[in-house]
């Protein structure tokens, strides 16, 4: 169970607006987060991950307080152990696909399985710049899964995939999410895109 009650100022074209979120996400649930551009979807994910700090608020995960501004508690991202798929992929240009996954985990069996799911087995020695956009996006998803996260945050994770690859990947991801019992939050600008994967939805205005 992830419980969130935060207030964070957002920079907007005309002045500022405040992102106010008070909600809970059940353990093991897969939730689609959608809303207009600039509403604060990415900010919400980054705040949960600990990359951004809200002005006020509290975040707890399974009774562990990650953030409590009133008590000056703010766990660093390293201690939250969240899988995060970045919108810009955030791939490390210096590492090959394999080095990249080995940086995240030393479980070689798990790495092989992830590579198979993403159809990247033959690209182990390739660096990101030699992968297509879709391959890069799949690699970004693999890295987040490599640490077997209990909470997975995905920011527009399927935007560069063709429909066929996307549906195959989504089918595999559903199995993995169930196996890891991960709570998953997926940000999308297209509410219909994740039909069949998510079981809940949360709209940010």
């Amino acid at each position: 169970m992830i419980s969130i009650d935060i207030e964070k100022k957002l920079k907007a074209y005309k002045g500022q607006h405040v992102l106010k979120i008070k909600t809970e996400f059940a353990a093991g649930s897969i939730t689609k987060i959608y809303g207009p551009s600039g509403a604060g979807k990415t900010t919400l994910l980054k705040t949960i991950a600990g990359f951004l700090t809200p002005e006020h608020g509290k975040i707890t995960a399974d009774d562990v307080t990650w953030l409590d501004t009133a008590q000056n508690i703010n766990l660093p991202p390293q201690q939250r152990r969240i899988g995060f798929v970045f919108q810009d992929y955030a791939l490390f240009p210096n590492m090959t696909v394999l080095q990249y996954l080995e940086y995240a985990t030393d479980d070689s069996v798990w790495i092989d399985r992830l590579l198979k799911i993403a159809k990247l087995e033959t690209f182990k020695t390739h660096k990101p710049e030699y992968l297509s956009g879709g391959q890069q996006q799949r690699l970004a998803i693999l890295r987040a899964l490599a640490i077997k996260p209990k909470l997975l945050l995905m920011d527009e994770p399927f935007s560069a995939l063709d429909p066929e690859t996307k549906s195959a990947l989504i089918a595999d991801l559903k199995k993995i999410f169930a196996e890891l019992k991960s709570t998953v939050l997926i940000v999308t600008h297209n509410a219909q895109e994740l039909d069949g994967l998510t079981d809940l939805e949360f709209r940010i205005h």
Partner: peptide, 21 residues
């Protein structure tokens, strides 16, 4: 991009490990 640092932190890597690797 700051996301490179964040990605490394999300894997549990310290600031120093992120800086070096």
């Amino acid at each position: 991009p700051i996301s490179l640092e964040h990605a490394s932190y999300s894997l549990g890597k310290s600031k120093w490990q992120t800086f070096i690797n």
